[in-house]
Computed example of a mutant assay.
Amino acid sequence: MKSAAHLQNDNILSKYILNIKGLKLLDTKNTKFEWLIPNFISKQSLNMIYAGAGSGKTMFALHLCNYLIKNNAKIDEILYFDADNGVDMLQNRQADKIVDDSNSKLKYILSNSLSRFGLFKNINKKAKFGDLKNKLVIIDSVRNFIKGSLSKDENITKFMADLQSIRDKGATIIFLHHQPKQGMDKNDENYKGATAFMDSVDEAYYLQNETDNAIVADNTMILSLKPKKRRSHTKEAVVQIDTKNLSLEFIKDDFFGLNEKEKISLQLAKEIVDQKSEISQSDLANAIQKLANKNYLEIVGRNTLWKLFDKFDGKLFKIKRLKGYGNCNKKIFCNIENVEEK
Rank of each mutant, 00 (worst) to 15 (best):
I20L: 14
K294E: 15
D76S: 13
K323L: 13
K263P: 03
S104Q: 14
I78T: 08
Q208P: 00
Q91W: 13
L248G: 09
N19H: 09
T220A: 01
S111D: 02
K121Y: 04
K181E: 05
K270R: 10
K105W: 02
K311Y: 04
K15E: 13
I78F: 01
I75Y: 06
D254G: 03
I288S: 08
E340N: 14
V137K: 05
L266I: 05
I272V: 01
V238H: 11
N134S: 09
D162M: 08
I20T: 11
Y206I: 03
G148P: 08
M89E: 13
L223D: 03
F159T: 05
G118T: 00
D88E: 10
F317P: 06
I215G: 06
K290F: 15
L308F: 10
Y16F: 11
S113I: 00
D254Y: 06
K121V: 01
F333N: 12
Q275G: 01
A269W: 00
Q289Y: 13
K261D: 07
K43S: 05
C334Y: 11
K135F: 05
L246E: 05
G56V: 10
L13M: 13
N219C: 02
K226E: 09
N295Q: 14
I69K: 07
S151A: 09
Q164D: 15
I251S: 03
L132H: 04
N303M: 10
N112E: 05
I241Y: 05
A5M: 12
G130I: 07
D202H: 03
K342S: 12
A53N: 09
P38V: 04
L305N: 05
W35C: 02
V142E: 01
D100R: 15
V239Q: 10
Y16M: 10
N92P: 00
D310H: 09
K181W: 04
I98K: 03
I174W: 02
Q267L: 08
L284K: 04
Q281S: 14
A171M: 04
N338Q: 14
N329Y: 11
M198P: 02
L225I: 07
Q164E: 13
D253P: 03
I272W: 04
I166E: 09
L90W: 04
F333L: 13
I37Y: 04
P180M: 08
D212M: 12
A161I: 07
